[in-house]
Computed example of a mutant assay.
Amino acid sequence: MKKLILQPAERDVRMEETLYRLLTAFLAAGLLGAGVIWLFRLDLSPFLLPCALRTWLGIYCPGCGGSRSFRFLLHGQILQSLFYHPLVPYGAAVCGWYWITHTLRHLTRGRIKGMRYRNLYCYLAVAIVILNFIWKNVMLLAFHMELIP
């Protein structure tokens, strides 16, 4: 039985294509879910649980504010979204640009190059989460300012 060994360039192309398909599937699922929620006027607030870390330890968790940030981003309030959790608009911008450029690449049959995946994008995301976590908890513990009610 022959092993399939891919060259680094071939591996990168396959990874880029897989990432594009995953983003397309998530986008389609999100639009479908949003459509169902809008069509049936569903209220999901009873299903939102309080943050366990905030409840038990009294500090913000690394994801605190993400839901509000997402809601503000959907309403076009980018500054509010950045305030509640900067990872949400960052992730939307990076993933959105990646998806748009790869869609254009598919539509033009490769004449337009798609955005390349770089590990740096993930490192920046982790840095944003860590800095946001530290900032919010310093404001809470040192200055008694609740940034997320």
Results as ranks from 00 to 15, higher is better:
Glu16Asp: 12
Glu17Asn: 12
Leu19Ser: 12
Tyr20Asp: 01
Arg21Gly: 11
Leu22Gly: 12
Leu23Phe: 14
Thr24Asp: 04
Thr24Phe: 15
Ala25Arg: 06
Phe26Ile: 11
Leu27Arg: 06
Ala28Asp: 06
Ala28Arg: 08
Ala29Glu: 07
Gly30Ile: 11
Leu32Asn: 07
Gly33Gln: 07
Ala34Ile: 09
Trp38Asp: 15
Trp38Arg: 15
Trp38Phe: 15
Leu39Phe: 12
Arg41Cys: 12
Arg41Gly: 14
Leu42Trp: 13
Asp43Lys: 10
Leu44Asn: 02
Ser45Gln: 12
Ser45Tyr: 05
Ser45Val: 05
Pro46Ile: 04
Phe47Met: 15
Phe47Ile: 06
Pro50Lys: 03
Cys51His: 10
Leu53Ser: 11
Leu57Glu: 11
Leu57His: 10
Gly58His: 03
Ile59Gln: 00
Tyr60Pro: 02
Tyr60Thr: 08
Cys61Ile: 09
Gly65His: 04
Gly66Pro: 03
Ser67Phe: 12
Ser67Ile: 15
Arg68Gly: 07
Ser69Cys: 02
Ser69Phe: 09
Phe70Pro: 00
Leu73Gly: 02
Leu74Asn: 10
Leu74Phe: 14
Leu74Met: 15
His75Ala: 10
Gln77Ile: 07
Ile78Trp: 14
Ile78Gln: 00
Leu79Cys: 04
Leu79His: 07
Ser81Leu: 04
Ser81Tyr: 09
Leu82Asn: 03
Phe83Lys: 05
Phe83Leu: 09
Phe83Val: 07
Phe83Ser: 01
His85Arg: 08
Val88Lys: 02
Pro89Ala: 07
Tyr90Ala: 01
Gly91Asn: 02
Gly91Phe: 04
Gly91Arg: 08
Ala92Phe: 14
Ala93Leu: 14
Val94Ala: 05
Cys95Asn: 08
Gly96Ile: 08
Trp97Pro: 04
Trp97Ser: 13
Tyr98Lys: 12
His102Leu: 10
His102Tyr: 10
Thr103Gln: 06
Leu104Glu: 10
Leu104Ser: 02
Arg105Lys: 11
Arg105Phe: 00
Arg105Gly: 00
Leu107Cys: 08
Arg109Glu: 15
Arg109Thr: 11
Arg109Lys: 08
Arg111Phe: 05
Lys113Thr: 06
Gly114Glu: 05
Met115Pro: 01
Arg116Met: 09
Tyr117Gly: 03
Tyr117Gln: 07
Arg118His: 13
Asn119Lys: 05
Tyr121Asn: 09
Cys122Asp: 08
Cys122Ile: 13
Cys122Met: 12
Tyr123Gly: 09
Leu124Asp: 00
Leu124Phe: 09
Ala125Cys: 09
Ala125Trp: 09
Val126Asp: 00
Ala127Leu: 14
Ile128Tyr: 00
Ile130Tyr: 00
Phe133Ser: 06
Phe133His: 11
Trp135Gln: 06
Lys136Asn: 13
Lys136Thr: 04
Asn137His: 01
Val138Lys: 03
Met139Lys: 14
Leu140Ile: 03
Leu140Asp: 02
Leu140Thr: 03
Leu141Cys: 06
Ala142Cys: 13
Ala142His: 09
Ala142Lys: 11
Phe143Gly: 04
His144Leu: 10
His144Tyr: 12
